[in-house]
């Protein structure tokens, strides 16, 4: 699951899709008849794509992952848009978080040579981007900015926790 090769990524695609659709979909906490806390692992799939993946391909893979989630969530396009955005901002997050001596050329961000704090920041940026874009697309109008902000604020830590646990769980097994 933690590998950098194509097969590992394909397996990860389906495993994360399974987790999202059949396990994390059950989680929707909230009050007053509205749910505010969700868990998304879409950012994790984007985060774990190999470093050397061409940038357009990252965007395309992210799109397909989001589309796959959408097929089960019956919200065609919403997760896809969020995942596509997440895939697009990954390059900028990587540039911002680049270590002083740079990334190892053939490395994947699989945690072998990167610190837990780096992982936390990396996942936090991607999750935030994913979540904000997701709720923006879900509301589809700036007039709901209060709900968008509240849902984003509550969902980001929950998703980050789930993604962090999964990374910590898989990281030793390269």
């Amino acid at each position: 699951m933690g590998g950098v090769d194509t097969v590992s990524n394909i397996i990860r695609f389906f495993v994360l899709l399974f987790l999202q659709v059949f396990i994390f979909r059950q989680i929707s906490l909230g009050w007053g008849g509205a749910a505010y806390v969700f868990v998304f692992v879409g950012p994790l799939f984007v985060a774990l794509l190999p470093l050397r993946t061409p940038k357009p391909l990252v965007v395309i893979f992210a799109f397909f992952f989001g589309l796959a989630i959408d097929l089960f969530y019956e919200t065609l396009g919403v997760h896809a848009a969020a995942a596509t955005f997440c895939g697009y901002v990954r390059q900028f997050v990587l540039a911002v978080l680049e270590p002083k001596d740079g990334y190892k050329v053939k490395a994947s961000p699989d945690g072998k040579d990167l610190s837990p704090s780096w992982w936390l920041a990396y996942l936090a940026y991607l999750t935030l981007g994913y979540v904000v874009f997701y709720f923006s697309m879900e509301a589809f109008s700036p007039v709901y900015w209060k709900q968008i902000s509240l849902k984003s604020l509550l969902t980001t830590p929950a998703s980050l926790l789930a993604c962090g646990i999964l990374v910590a769980f898989f990281r030793p097994r390269v």
Binding site: P54, K55, P56, D70, G77, A80, Y88, M137, E138, F140
Partner: peptide, 25 residues
């Protein structure tokens, strides 16, 4: 700027899907 144009193209596709397959949006 391949990733940018891919992003834009896919976002437009997503918007199309959102508007056509989600009643509230």
């Amino acid at each position: 700027n391949g990733s940018f144009f891919t992003f834009i193209g896919l976002q437009l596709l997503c918007l199309y899907l959102i508007v056509n397959f989600n009643s509230p949006q």
